[in-house]
Amino acid sequence: MSVSTAALHPTLPSWLDPRAATNLDRVATSDGDAIRPSHERLTPEPTDDSAALVARARDGDRGAFRKLFERHRGDVARLVYRMVGPRAEIEDLIQEVFVQVHRSLRDFRGEARFSTWLHRVTVNVVLMHRRAEKSRPVLAEEMESGTVEDLTTTMPDVEVERRKRITAFFALIAEIADKKRVVFVLHDLEGKAPSEIAEIVEAPILTVRTRLFYARRELEEKMKAHPLLASIVEREGGFAGVAQAARRESK
């Protein structure tokens, strides 16, 4: 017997219903910028070309691997940044991702798109890094060292405020559980479709949607309590509804 998730979990919204298989994708299409902004799309995947490069790199062609690196490094850098925030070790993580890619090329069978596989490797490297980091005590000197560049820069007040909001938001993202955070970053920040996220995190689409729902709700609660971000909640009329905001915009 088939029972909808919404029926099993009254608190879950209807779009989590597995029968609404492509609900989010339709929203993405109709809402455009809301889910998958056009300027945020990844470099168009030249599937055949990437596959050929992967094959050549697997054969030991150093030039092919460098081309893969040059083609995809921007995507990796952006995803790493969005997963860890403005941190000093971003370049180290990017490097580690490509070291892992190089080591694992033989395991890439071409069943998924290369970019999907690359995102999976990137997510795993970042999560491994975070787990290792958690086991290491953070010292005062280390916390301060991450802000060295910012301290020497004089910025207009508006820019300072914006930076502070972004840093605060990344701190909130870092507080939520890994699985939810990954889905939130991939969907709401990277603009990926739930079907592709499901491939990246190797989970059912319904699970992806559930994690996204709870990630957003958790972030909303944290924003309300945050001194820097609560004003945005206030300004936007709380989290009462998209429909209200849409009405305001139309007026």
Partner: peptide
């Protein structure tokens, strides 16, 4: 009013847009 959960709430969306617009410089060399 029941919210349409398929998109982030406006307040969350506002911050998401700021983060999306943020670029991180990488010293590729």
């Amino acid at each position: 009013m029941e919210r349409d959960e398929s998109a982030p709430a406006p307040a969350l969306r506002a911050v998401i847009d700021e983060v999306r617009a943020e670029e991180h410089d990488v010293d590729w060399a």
